[in-house]
Amino acid sequence: MMDRTHSIIAKLRVKPGERVKLKERDPRDSSLFGDEQDTKAATATLAEDIDVLQDSLYAEGSRALLVVLQGTDTSGKDGTIRSVFNATGPLGVSVTAFGTPTKTELAHDYLWRVHAACPRRGTIGIFNRSHYEDVLIAKVRNFASKKAIEQRYDQINAFEKMLVENGTTILKFMLHISKDEQKERLQERLDDPRKHWKFNPGDLEDRNYWDEYQGAYETMLHRCSTGHAPWYVIPADRKWVRNAAIASIVKATLEEMDPQYPKASWKPNDFAIP
């Protein structure tokens, strides 16, 4: 299993300075995994392992893990959270979904709301969308000037380095789906009344900018995958592959962090329960 995890990391991690061509990365790639049902069962086990590791991270209370999930609409950010972190104790996990900035947030710098949501020591923080919206939608839809966008890549790298230097490990996952797969998922939301609440007409407008978004993602990956905060391009057309890949990387990262339960200053036999 460890060899497979190393293969997953090596294949999906974006090296610092690498120029990624998303058209050359198959969003339906399942070559790193075997049978679908076996992989789903293995992912459930990984989720339980993550819970155990998170428990010791919480008890240790000195470091944090930030998981960034970034992708186009319907790429599976919510589904990833449900599948990978469904077994994790709620006290040690926080999920922040970043939507359109409020007036208060717009009155501050673009990283203000992000820094406030970063996980405290001992916890895992999950970002459903993130500060990278400010070099994606802001770039494609011209919500900021070209000069401002250009400055943000280095600002984000510096921000993430500061987090790492203060004890937060960062994992960033770009959920890579095809335009055809997005179409199927959007249609499913229209066809199923239980999913109507998920449908946003604005998603159809964004599809008109598909190529522009792909280009913005490629620039983001090139400029902001660093040694201290790497990006991983996750093939996400197959949900079970997406979940297995992310769960494998999260577990391996927590194992590398190696959180330890603190030692008590007393001995159990010093006490007698009345």
Score class of each variant (00 low, 15 high):
126 I>G: 02
127 F>E: 01
127 F>C: 01
127 F>H: 01
127 F>R: 00
128 N>W: 02
129 R>E: 06
129 R>M: 04
129 R>F: 03
129 R>A: 05
129 R>S: 00
130 S>I: 03
131 H>F: 08
131 H>I: 04
131 H>D: 00
133 E>F: 05
134 D>A: 08
134 D>V: 08
134 D>H: 10
135 V>N: 04
135 V>A: 14
135 V>S: 04
136 L>I: 04
137 I>N: 11
138 A>Y: 12
138 A>D: 09
138 A>P: 08
139 K>T: 10
139 K>L: 03
139 K>C: 02
140 V>A: 09
141 R>K: 15
142 N>E: 13
144 A>W: 01
144 A>R: 01
144 A>S: 14
145 S>I: 05
146 K>R: 15
146 K>H: 12
146 K>W: 07
148 A>L: 12
148 A>N: 09
149 I>N: 04
150 E>T: 10
150 E>G: 00
151 Q>T: 08
153 Y>Q: 05
153 Y>I: 08
154 D>G: 15
155 Q>P: 00
155 Q>M: 12
155 Q>Y: 03
156 I>E: 01
156 I>F: 00
157 N>D: 15
158 A>H: 06
158 A>L: 07
161 K>G: 07
163 L>T: 06
164 V>A: 15
164 V>G: 15
165 E>I: 02
166 N>Y: 10
167 G>N: 07
167 G>T: 11
168 T>P: 02
169 T>D: 05
170 I>S: 10
171 L>W: 06
171 L>M: 09
172 K>R: 08
172 K>C: 04
173 F>H: 03
174 M>E: 14
174 M>A: 14
175 L>F: 08
176 H>L: 08
176 H>C: 10
177 I>T: 13
177 I>V: 15
178 S>A: 11
178 S>D: 07
179 K>D: 12
180 D>P: 09
183 K>F: 14
183 K>Y: 10
183 K>S: 14
185 R>T: 12
185 R>W: 12
185 R>G: 12
186 L>A: 01
186 L>R: 07
186 L>H: 13
187 Q>C: 14
187 Q>K: 14
187 Q>L: 15
187 Q>F: 15
